[in-house]
């Protein structure tokens, strides 16, 4: 069963799972009507259910009606709210309460034995005194002043992690690097959407970006293997912020840091963009790259696919 199946990552994962002859059946779950043409292609192995995951009753019925009937074995929880400006109890319900409920239901489900949760690198606390290469044991962002998007991510991650070793389920948490793609909640995607990118003067941190294809592949590997635990999922692209701006064909303007938050707030109000400087403040100052050795060793995951950058590396011309 895959939640968030209508998101680009969910869709890609469902496609990959259906392409694998070892997959008996995929129960795709989304908030919208089924946009996938997969049912037509493979009606025997694909089912779609439109469910509001923030409603505990709907969630319960999904698992103990369809889920039981279809004898689902693995739950991939991939549904997280994407817009950074949206806050409040309903967002929290989707990000955290739903994760808690889903995990608890899966634990008492008769056929589910594996739970895979897609977390994010945003859960890590970026500290200039810490390591640039973040391992799974590095500190999490537990600051009460962190924006809700980050606090929710951390709480959901910890909710799942605290059940490891106590749950009858095999639990896997994948902390994915930022996926640079549309409609996945990528802050950088929105940031690079502007023709002029402002960045804090004097700072040019290293970023690690993940492609959709690699994110889906990591989830697929986590579904298939017996391994359990927390795994970082780094991307193939490791580069400074200025280089990312350049490869995206944007103009960068370094400005004193204190000016950036109000300017980006203004931009968000004017055109409804999603980028929040306060959410990215530390990331735009201090380097952070995920250490993916554990995922490589245990899941066999290695990033293979680069981001398709609109401007080629060598010439600077449009490719």
């Amino acid at each position: 069963m895959v939640t968030g199946a209508t998101t680009p990552i969910g869709r890609r994962l469902v496609e990959r799972l259906l392409a694998d002859p070892g997959t008996t059946l995929v129960l795709a779950v989304g908030a919208e009507p089924d946009p996938l043409p997969l049912a037509v292609r493979d009606p025997e192995r694909y089912r779609y259910r439109q469910v509001d995951l923030t409603r505990p009753r709907e969630l319960h019925d999904l698992l103990f009606s369809d889920g039981r009937q279809l004898q689902i074995e693995t739950v991939v929880h991939n549904a997280l709210h994407r817009r950074a400006h949206d806050e409040g109890p309903r967002i929290h319900a989707l990000n955290v309460e739903c994760t808690r409920d889903l995990l608890s239901l899966a634990e008492r489900h008769p056929t589910v034995s594996r739970f895979v949760f897609r977390s994010a690198s945003a859960v890590y606390r970026l500290d200039p005194r810490g390591s640039t290469l973040l391992s799974e044991d590095d500190p999490l962002e537990l600051s009460p002043s962190a924006p809700q998007k980050v606090r929710d991510r951390v709480e959901a991650d910890l909710t799942v992690c605290t059940r490891m070793g106590m749950s009858p389920l095999q639990i896997v948490v994948l902390r994915c690097a930022e996926i640079l793609a549309a409609d996945v909640g990528s802050q950088l995607w929105d940031y690079l959407g502007s023709k002029v990118c402002l960045r804090p003067t004097g700072f040019d941190p290293m970023l690690n970006l993940l492609s959709l294809e690699d994110a889906a592949r990591a989830l697929q590997l986590a579904v298939g293997g017996p391994e359990r635990g927390v795994f970082n999922v780094p991307g193939r692209d490791v580069l400074p912020l200025s280089r990312a701006i350049e490869l995206w064909g944007r103009v960068e303007i370094p400005l004193p840091g204190p000016l950036l938050a109000p300017l980006y707030r203004l931009r968000a109000r004017a055109i409804g963009s999603d980028f929040r400087y306060d959410l990215n403040f530390r990331r735009f100052h201090f380097s952070a790259v995920l250490d993916g050795r554990r995922a490589q060793r245990e899941l066999g995951y290695e990033p293979l696919h680069r981001i398709v950058w609109p401007y080629s590396q060598s010439s600077g011309s449009h490719s």
């Binding site: 640039t132 290469l133 290293m206 193939r236 490791v238 400074p240 280089r243 380097s287 680069r306």
Partner: peptide, 9 residues
């Protein structure tokens, strides 16, 4: 690491 820099910059 892929873009002419190592992971530490």
């Amino acid at each position: 690491a892929g873009h002419g820099f190592d992971v530490l910059g």
